[in-house]
Every structure is written in C-alpha cells, then in structure tokens.
Amino acid sequence: MKAFIENDILYIDKEDLPQYQKGKSIVRNNYFWALKSISDYTPMNGNWEFASEVWVALSRMLLFFTNSGYLGYRETMLEFSDDTLIPDVLRSISTKL
C-alpha cells in the first residue's frame, strides 16, 4: 500500500486501500474494518489517515494479516518513496518503492 507521512500523520493512498465487498471474502472485509477502526479519518474517496499514536497498533495489525497468509504483501505492507525516513515503529511492515 503506497503511503506517506506528513506532520506525524501516516496517509495510505486511496487507490491501495482495501475495499469492503458485501458477501465476499470474510478475511478481506475484516481487514477493511480493522484498518478503518484505528484510522483517524477515512473519507470515502480520499486517503486514510493514521495519527502516530496508533502506529504501534497498525504495525501489529498489518503483521497479523501478513502472517495469516490470506492476503498478499502488496496489500499489507506500507510502501514509501525512497526519500522517506521510515519511523522505527513502522519499519517491520514497510518497504521502499
């Protein structure tokens, strides 16, 4: 998931967010609701925002879904640009583009 950080807010690109699909995969829908539940702001057609206070929870949640084997790395790893300094708390679930 493409991500960037501004003013201690992590943004996940709206194009890479999981989609809720009624009657579809339970794992993907649980992933959608789990992410949404710890996000600070989730506009319908915008990037989701995560304050630094929830980054530990976000890291643990992304690691859990990554290790479950039901979702691919591109769906559960944060992708940052090469010039981004990745905070320690997010390093285990992050990669560079």
Results as ranks from 00 to 15, higher is better:
59 S>R: 04
42 T>F: 10
19 Q>L: 13
93 I>T: 05
1 M>S: 10
55 W>Y: 02
82 D>K: 13
40 D>M: 03
72 G>F: 12
24 K>S: 14
30 N>P: 10
1 M>K: 06
1 M>E: 04
36 K>H: 13
4 F>R: 08
44 M>T: 15
96 K>Q: 04
76 T>H: 03
28 R>Y: 11
54 V>K: 01
22 K>E: 13
11 Y>A: 03
33 W>C: 06
4 F>H: 08
73 Y>V: 15
96 K>L: 13
29 N>F: 07
66 T>Q: 14
61 M>L: 12
23 G>Q: 09
5 I>A: 01
37 S>K: 11
18 P>K: 04
3 A>P: 03
64 F>Y: 12
42 T>H: 07
94 S>G: 02
61 M>D: 02
78 L>Y: 02
61 M>W: 01
73 Y>G: 14
26 I>D: 15
29 N>W: 07
84 T>D: 09
86 I>E: 00
67 N>R: 14
35 L>M: 10
30 N>A: 09
50 F>G: 00
25 S>I: 12
47 N>Q: 11
51 A>H: 13
27 V>L: 13
28 R>V: 11
80 F>K: 05
65 F>S: 07
84 T>A: 13
91 R>E: 06
7 N>C: 08
16 D>S: 12
28 R>A: 12
17 L>S: 11
2 K>L: 11
9 I>L: 09
80 F>W: 08
48 W>L: 02
57 A>P: 00
48 W>C: 01
36 K>A: 07
16 D>T: 14
23 G>V: 15
83 D>I: 10
10 L>K: 06
22 K>H: 14
18 P>H: 12
86 I>R: 00
43 P>W: 11
72 G>W: 09
50 F>A: 02
93 I>L: 08
49 E>D: 00
80 F>Y: 07
68 S>P: 07
40 D>E: 09
92 S>I: 06
50 F>E: 00
32 F>T: 02
94 S>R: 03
78 L>G: 02
79 E>L: 14
52 S>R: 10
86 I>S: 03
96 K>E: 00
39 S>F: 05
87 P>T: 05
51 A>W: 01
66 T>I: 06
75 E>P: 04
79 E>Y: 14
13 D>K: 07
15 E>Y: 12
97 L>R: 08
26 I>L: 15
49 E>P: 02
44 M>C: 08
65 F>E: 11
7 N>S: 12
94 S>E: 05
48 W>A: 01
78 L>C: 05
51 A>I: 05
27 V>C: 06
37 S>M: 11
81 S>D: 15
77 M>G: 05
21 Q>T: 15
90 L>I: 06
20 Y>M: 15
13 D>L: 09
35 L>W: 02
79 E>W: 09
97 L>I: 07
62 L>K: 05
25 S>V: 08
32 F>Y: 15
44 M>P: 05
48 W>T: 01
4 F>N: 03
59 S>T: 08
44 M>G: 04
43 P>F: 11
90 L>P: 00
83 D>V: 12
38 I>D: 06
58 L>E: 00
18 P>Q: 08
40 D>P: 04
55 W>R: 00
50 F>I: 00
50 F>T: 01
23 G>T: 13
75 E>M: 09
45 N>T: 13
91 R>V: 10
